[in-house]
């Protein structure tokens, strides 16, 4: 249902100690945030990409698709960094003057954008390495070792369990609406979307009621052991 999650449980590196995977990914991630030469970003990306595709066995087609996910943001922000404003035209490689203000591109802007592009790619490959090879079960062990408060880990464990239930339900409700022409026009789409969230929320509340009963029959004493 969630592709990243699916691979986390089925990849070839899943049996490796999660702390090792976490430390390695975080180490590379932090290394990539340091002001290192540009070529090193490429190096990090290649290493992480290789480990993810070759060692963990994530199909390259889906991996490339996943890498595209954060790119909307990247494109938007690179545009805004590459274009500069100024009152004098000297620093620009290329500029146009609008009402006395220069709008253009500077060499530093290009360098900055390039750095950002490469750095983000490197970091994303690190994050993907971690999330694609470490199932949530194992991640929890890491967070326990990191001394994250118990209350937070408990919530994570429970939320993770319920996510899949509600995702499935939301999909089913949406399909049923679609079959009855709920998403024809923009206005109808908004209306149907509101209805879907209402139905989903009612189900959340019903589930809470039923699960409390189930908890009671399992001697729940206020603590979810993790």
């Amino acid at each position: 249902m969630l592709l990243i999650d699916k691979y986390a449980y089925t990849n070839k590196l899943r049996k490796i100690n999660p702390m090792v995977k976490f430390s390695f990914a975080m180490g590379m991630l932090i290394f990539s945030l340091l002001p290192i030469p540009l070529w090193l970003y490429g190096g990090v990306s290649l290493i992480m990409g290789y480990l993810t595709v070759k060692s963990a066995g994530i199909p390259i087609k889906n991996y490339s698709k996943m890498l595209m996910i954060p790119f909307t943001f990247l494109v938007l922000s690179v545009i805004s960094i590459i274009i500069s404003f100024g009152e004098s035209g000297e620093v620009f490689m290329w500029a146009t003057k609008v009402r006395g203000i220069y709008i253009g591109i500077t060499p530093q802007g290009i360098e900055m954008s390039l750095r950002l592009l490469l750095r983000s790619t490197a970091c994303i490959t690190c994050m993907y390495f971690y999330s694609l090879t470490t199932p949530l079960d194992q991640q929890i062990q890491v967070y326990k070792k990191l001394r994250i408060p118990k209350e937070i880990i408990e919530l994570m464990v429970l939320i993770y369990r319920f996510i899949f239930i509600f995702l499935e339900e939301a999909k089913e409700i949406r399909n049923a609406q679609e079959m009855r022409f709920g998403y024809n026009t923009f206005k109808q789409s908004c209306h149907s979307f509101s209805l879907m969230i209402k139905v989903l929320f009612i189900r959340v509340m019903q589930r809470n009621k039923d699960m409390q009963i189930s908890l009671e029959s399992k001697f729940f004493n206020g603590e979810f052991h993790i």
């Binding site: 408990e154 919530l155 429970l158 939320i159 993770y160 369990r161 319920f162 996510i163 239930i165 509600f166 995702l167 939301a170 989903l200 929320f201 959340v204 589930r207 809470n208 699960m211």
Partner: peptide, 9 residues
């Protein structure tokens, strides 16, 4: 937790 999952979804 249920609310958290709802928010995520």
């Amino acid at each position: 937790a249920l609310c958290g999952a709802f928010v995520f979804v």
